[in-house]
Amino acid sequence: MILRLRDLSVRLGGSHILQGVTFDVPPAGVTALLGRNGVGKTTTLRAILGEVPASGAVEFGGEPVLGRPTHKLVRSGLGYVPEDRCVFGGLTVAENLRLAVRGPDPDYDTVHELFPELRARAGQRAGTLSGGQQQMVAIARVLLNRNRLLLVDEPTKGLAPAVVSSVAAVLARVAEHVPILLVEQNLAVVRRLAAGAVVLEAGRVAWTGTASDLLGDAGRTRTLLGVGRS
């Protein structure tokens, strides 16, 4: 297991957002982290990264990492593609990428192969890009470096259907080399990418298993995710 969460709890401003989350992420393929809005998916990712104070235990590659500063954890091979992309709007595309480079040998070849558009728009300010292009920048930032795990938060949120499918295709290719913990609302994307699935409910793990077991059972999907057919 590349990542183990044991009894992870987060309290923010008086509310108990995560109440003992426990699950594992295998060292290959895509694991989907699912659940209704507000159950704590994004908070789980941010707690793993050390962006919010948490208790419990997180093991990354066999080492306990909870309480370690975010930047050190990331440098040890944890890539993060945040919700809402968080590209730096005032910086150019090239500057956004340059900032993300961690090692002496950034993998620009892969980035330019997957996103030829970014090379053409290198001098453009990232704030003026479309949502899909910004998502490319956000994903490209983690592909420049060698990572042992990627945390990817709602990469298709707010994108046009055609763009959703190309983002999914990129993630499928990326997942051939590096495991991904994926938060995603679009169940079609989950079905296409994910092997394992973890479902959160009110700050706790409500279900773990394979993605096909979850999505193949309409009743289970409905009770756990609050959606009808998908």
């Binding site: 500063p69 975010t70 930047h71 050190k72 990331v74 968080c86 709007g89 900032l99």
Partner: peptide, 21 residues
């Protein structure tokens, strides 16, 4: 300078790129 400009926008994200902001 790049780190400072990016940090002014969103310093959490700068840390999340592996930089000691």
């Amino acid at each position: 300078g790049l780190i400072i400009r990016a940090g002014v926008e969103n310093r959490d994200m700068v840390s999340a790129l592996g930089i000691d902001v």
